[in-house]
Write a protein that binds this DNA or RNA. Structure first.
Length: 890
RNA sequence: GCGCGCAUAGCUCAGUUGGUUAGAGCGCCACUUUCACACGGUGGAGGUCACAGGUCCGAGUCCUGUUGCGCGCACCA
């Protein structure tokens, strides 16, 4: 027996500080590659090395932790690989800002090598905070297996993949219009561009014919690109321009002659039907330029300023300044016809936060279509399942319209492209190193300056973490992984590409299930963001409410596939729940700790058990089944609700209250009830452990359910008691129903109490007239529990007592409470009249339903029978209500 | 334009393949510091399930349409 008593309220801080290091030290998180158990693997979506813990991470990693702990208890060899992403643009930008602030240096001041040294230094000092922070919420990651997308092994995998794809003709270098971020001064992939609706203008500009015979008016949203125009295009079918195509126009400002051309791409009905063509600065114009063999002058520098091709006056001006100046000059020259307000979509750099510039340049691309084909099949065939599955449609739409992936970045922080150019003839060689000698005989080479898109390393994550391309035992054992938990926002960036690379390089899907988490918003429905200052720091929340409380709350409020609205107050749900369980144990410990054989119910017989014991065992069995299924089906939200409702409502409010007399009794039922109590308690602690790991392990130990050097974390997941054994214990459906009816009667008496404003602490004399012989026999089994639930001074089964009484009716019987001097006849009549009305209404509903032949013939027999039972019960109840009304003289 | 999602109690949301009198948490009202818990207990009020049709014996649930909100993709300069 424990001699120390638990504090009244649960304080999580010390419990969390105690258990996490204990679990980690004991190696519970570490997976054994040689074990005989079935493997269950998750690879963490690697957070950015620059990142700090957000609520999004909390949700995402709690879900993974639930799966890992659940599967571990179910007997699997669980392996949860943690790690980080080097996050090219984000990290480089962060370190550049840092250097500017601390040393007033730019990366160009340092040069490539020194700058990279600084990034590594920064990484060692400030990076990876998030990995430490993850521990505070209890994540059971296999820390010795932690990887970094830029570590040696993963870099080797990246290089290998690049070389293989190049040799297979799936990586090529191309001259194309790409999305350019003028802030980070690099190319981007299509996915890194975010389109935002903006209210801009449509400028209508005159382009006079060179022969002075008139003009063509074009409409544009980007006047500053006028210096790069090499044609004006109209639709070939457009009557307005018939006969004019082929004539030369004077390009305003530049005073250069450009042709009027005809191209199908132009819509007759938009704007003026004439489009200025700037091939180097617009993807559509580029296509037109190719078709018509137009010159493609680039008029901008890589930082978004104008270059010498834009003319002396504009050279060096920022594109936004140039825009204003161009408009001014056109206006002054009388070439500006009008300016319309115009709402249109503008592409922004995801990381840089500035408008992207379409730019003609030489970049490396991955040819995606051949990779997409098998990846489409993997999902349509069901080899990979999405939860919720509606994301399949999004995935397939992208996959079926996939474009080549621009993978080169003009950054320094990233995997250098393994391509080498002969310094003499320029021939390119792709490989781990430059060849000794070029075909031309020259021996000097330079490596490609560019690095690879960060996602080019992330997409290999499920197998590169196990040291692919080496055939390691880990790779063999833990690939393919089982479940991926991630946000739907990176379905294209990451999920789709992992599927493609997994199939390509491993010949097998990288995971079987993908669970897409909710997006967290604030209580007003806004996305959490730094600028709105509406993202609570999870570490503060943990400090205030506890890690378990935060975990439980997040999962409790996060339904599958829906966004969630979060505010800190909601963590009270989890905090209060943890406190509730804490107090169950506090209560239980008043009767000593658990005996060693607490899990063994084999000595129990039906006769030893009170109906409430049988009822709770029946309910517990149900919850074991339900919860197991819900976790296995990723229905975390409902799993939380199930266990919450069971513990709070069924166990605490009914069972525990019913057990108080038995537990205070010196012997007899005490043993059996304690046994059932402990069995339930130990079982639900285990069920709850994956969701609330800290408090459950603490209480498991407080109860001495296991020894000090053991842990709930490594116990076996609960199994339902077999049906035949349940029957032996008398925990049958019919007992469960009778007991539920008993509680219904208790509720009716409590309602009576409230109506007469009788304090809940005032013990009452109660006489119950059972509704049937079966009811009488059942109620006779245990007067103590019923008396306790009713808070009765005396409780007898018998006929209605003499004198003024309050009446409480339920299907199992009628309860009479003598209320000498308290009964207000008018009020009592009114109360019963109301109940009569309800019963009459319900009976009418049921009779109508049951007299409908279609219903009786078509509906399931069980539904019909249930209605018939309810009808009989309600009719019986109505009769008793009327009897009492008659007695009142109403 | 195409696709997806959402609309249920004052608020935030559940509601499985259609079948008890539509639920929970918070908030609200009344009672309650009884000996596990006031981070508690008991009772209660509160909903024509966005709207209009349809299928069905039966619709919050399925179908069609409408409205409003959110998201994604693609865009006509």
């Amino acid at each position: 027996m424990s001699d120390e008593t638990l504090s009244k309220a649960y304080s999580p801080a010390e419990v969390e500080a105690k258990w996490y290091p204990t679990w980690e030290k004991r190696g519970y998180f570490h997976s054994d590659v040689n074990s005989a158990k079935k493997a269950y693997t998750i690879v963490i979506p690697p957070p950015n090395v620059t990142g700090i813990l957000t609520l999004g991470h909390v949700l995402n990693n709690t879900l993974q932790d639930i799966l890992i702990r659940f599967e571990k208890m179910r007997g699997k060899e669980t392996c949860w690989v943690p790690g980080m992403d080097h996050a090219g643009i984000a990290t480089q930008a962060k370190v550049e800002a840092f250097l500017k602030k601390e040393k007033n240096l730019t990366r160009y001041d340092l040069g490539r090598e020194k700058f990279l040294d600084e990034v590594w230094k920064w990484k060692e000092q400030y990076g990876g905070k998030i990995i430490q922070q993850l521990r505070t919420i209890g994540t059971s990651c296999d820390w010795p297996r932690e990887r970094f997308t830029f570590d040696e092994g993963l870099s080797a995998a990246v290089q290998e993949v690049f070389i293989r794809l190049y040799n297979d003709g799936l990586i090529y270098k191309g001259h194309r219009i790409i999305n350019w971020c003028p802030k980070s001064r690099t190319a981007l992939s299509d996915e890194e561009v975010i389109y935002r609706q903006e209210s801009g203008h449509l400028w209508h500009i005159r382009y006079p014919f060179a022969d002075g015979s008139g003009e063509v008016v074009v409409a544009t949203t980007r006047p500053e690109t006028i210096m790069g125009d090499t044609a004006v295009a109209v639709n070939p079918e457009d009557e307005r321009y018939k006969g004019l195509v082929g004539k030369m126009l004077i390009l305003p400002i530049m005073n250069r002659e450009i042709p009027l051309i005809a191209d199908e791409y132009v819509e007759k009905d938009f704007g003026t039907g004439a489009v200025k063509i700037t091939p180097a600065h617009d993807p559509n114009d580029y296509e037109v330029g190719l078709r018509h063999n137009l010159a493609m002058p680039n008029i901008m520098n890589d930082d978004g300023s104008m270059n010498e091709n834009a003319g002396e006056e504009f050279n060096g001006l920022d594109r936004s300044v140039a825009r204003k100046l161009v408009v001014e000059k056109l206006d002054a020259a009388g070439l500006l016809v009008k300016v319309e307000d115009y709402a249109h979509q503008v592409g922004y750099s995801e990381r840089g936060g500035v408008p992207v510039e379409p730019r003609l340049s030489e970049q490396w691309f991955v040819k995606m279509e051949p990779l997409a084909k098998p990846a489409i099949e993997a999902v349509t065939s069901g080899k990979i399942k999405f939860h919720p599955d509606r994301w399949v449609k999004t995935y397939l739409h992208w996959m079926e319209n996939i474009k080549d992936w621009c993978i080169s970045r003009q950054l320094w922080w990233g995997h250098r492209i393994p391509a080498y150019y002969c310094k003499k003839c320029g021939k390119v060689y792709v490989g781990k190193a430059a060849p000794e000698k070029c075909e031309c005989g020259h021996t000097e080479f330079r490596q490609d300056e560019d690095v690879l898109d960060t996602w080019f390393s992330s997409w290999l994550w499920p197998f590169s973490v196990f040291d692919w391309p080496n055939a390691t035992p880990e790779l063999k054992r833990f690939y393919p992984t089982d479940t991926l938990v991630t946000g739907p926002d990176i379905i294209f960036f990451w999920v789709a590409r992992m599927i493609m690379s997994g199939l390509r390089f491993m010949g097998e899907v990288p995971f079987k299930d993908v669970y897409f988490t909710s997006i967290i918003r604030d209580d007003k429905g806004r996305k959490l963001s730094k600028s709105l200052n509406n993202s609570p720091d999870p570490l503060d929340v943990v400090a205030t409410y506890g890690a378990d409380a935060l975990r439980f709350t997040m999962i409790y409020i996060a339904p599958m596939g829906q966004d969630i609205r979060y505010d800190n107050k909601k963590c009270e749900i989890g905090r209060n729940f943890a406190n509730k369980i804490w107090n169950v144990v506090r209560f239980r410990l008043q009767h000593g700790t658990a005996p060693k054989d607490w899990m063994d119910l084999s000595s129990l017989k039906a006769a030893d058990l009170r109906p409430d014991d049988q009822w709770i065992l029946s309910r517990l069995n149900q919850i074991v089944k339900t919860m197991t299924q819900q976790l296995a089906e990723f229905d975390f939200n409902n799993a939380c609700k199930s266990i919450y409702d069971f513990i709070w409502n069924e166990f605490c409010n009914w069972y525990l209250e019913s057990a108080k007399p038995a537990l205070s009794a010196p012997a007899g039922t005490t043993c059996a009830t304690l046994k059932v109590f402990d069995y339930c308690l130990g079982t639900f602690l285990k069920l709850l452990h994956p969701i609330m790991p800290f408090v459950t392990d603490e209480l498991y130990h407080q109860m001495e359910f296991c020894t000090e050097d053991d842990s709930i974390m490594v116990q076996a997941w609960p199994e339902a008691i077999p049906e035949d054994r349940m029957a032996e214990l008398g925990a049958t459906k019919s007992v469960e129903q009778l007991n539920a009816a008993k509680y219904e009667l208790v509720r009716a008496v409590r309602n009576l109490r409230a109506n007469y404003q009788l304090s809940t602490s005032l013990p009452l004399d109660v006489v119950i007239t059972p509704a049937s012989d079966e009811a009488k026999a059942f109620l006779d089994l245990d007067h103590d529990a019923l008396g306790a639930l009713l808070n009765a001074k005396s409780m007898v089964l018998g006929d209605k007592p003499q004198g003024p009484v309050g009446v409480a009716l339920s299907a199992i019987g009628t309860a009479f409470v003598p209320l000498e001097g308290l009964v207000d006849f008018a009020a009592e009549t009114e109360r019963l009249k109301k109940q009569e009305e309800e019963a009459v209404k319900y009976i009418a509903t049921l009779e109508k339903k049951l007299s409908n032949k279609g219903y009786v013939d078509h509906a399931p027999a069980a539904a019909v029978q249930a209605d018939r039972d309810h009808l009989a019960e309600t009719q019986d109840k109505l009769a008793r209500i009327r009897e009492q009304l008659a007695a009142l003289g109403a």
